[in-house]
């Protein structure tokens, strides 16, 4: 464990908590893409299949459990409890166009052709594009509530911090995981224009408005 990965995990946890609180407190999931939340639930499910079979550390097990429970709770809140506030008119990204290519790619490019490894690889590829429906929704509505932009900033920062973690691990432990690194770079790049808008607007107290 290193500081980059720890802060990254905490940023990830913060994002998930911000989203759950936003939906629970405002009793509304307006401006949130349910499609992205479904993809995140798929990402954690396929990545943490070894949750019950492999023990890495108490921290690792607890965090995996929290991510899985929180992602399903978010999907439940959006599609069941606060279904009436779900913006299905704007949340129209075809996630099958993300699921199928990621699955095919995980069959073609992986480190080991076993169920666990292919599922882990699939979850890495899928996570890199899972935010697309959310970014698509924000671009369609042209704006985002500030709480939603804080959620996105924390979520985007987590993987950016993981990039620093991989640099550190390469230098300090001569360890690298190319599939995770390439996917992590793609994932972080997708947030770049959002990061720009967040830093130039939201941090100055303005609403996040996308140029129409």
């Amino acid at each position: 464990m290193n500081i980059f990965r720890l802060v990254g995990d905490l940023s990830h946890l913060l994002a998930i908590i911000i989203l759950l609180l936003k939906i629970w407190k405002t009793r509304s999931c307006a401006g949130i893409s349910g499609k992205s939340q479904i993809l995140f639930a798929v990402v954690y499910t396929t990545r943490y299949l070894d949750l019950l079979t492999t023990y890495v550390s108490a921290y690792n097990t607890v965090m995996k459990f929290v991510f899985i429970v929180a992602s399903y709770a978010t999907v439940y809140l959006m599609y069941v409890k606060f279904r009436a506030t779900y913006d299905h008119n704007h949340d129209t990204f075809r996630i099958e166009f993300l699921l199928v290519p990621c699955f095919i790619l995980s069959l073609l490019i992986n480190h080991e052709f076993t169920v666990l490894e292919v599922m882990w690889t699939f979850s890495i590829y899928l996570e890199s594009v899972a935010i697309l429906p959310q970014l698509f929704l924000v671009s369609k509505t042209g704006e985002a509530e500030s709480i939603t932009s804080h959620y996105l900033f924390a979520l985007g920062s987590y993987r950016a911090l993981y990039l620093l973690n991989w640099v550190y691990r390469y230098m300090a432990e001569d360890h690298y995981e190319l599939i995770a690194i390439v996917s992590g770079v793609v994932q972080t790049v997708l947030y770049c224009d959002f990061f720009y808008l967040y830093i130039t607007k939201v941090l100055k107290g303005k609403k996040l408005q996308l140029p129409a």
Binding site: D9, V56, S57, H111, W120, H175
Partner: peptide
């Protein structure tokens, strides 16, 4: 080289 998987990461 890849020392083991990055499975210790979340």
């Amino acid at each position: 080289d890849r020392k083991g998987n990055a499975k210790d990461e979340l």
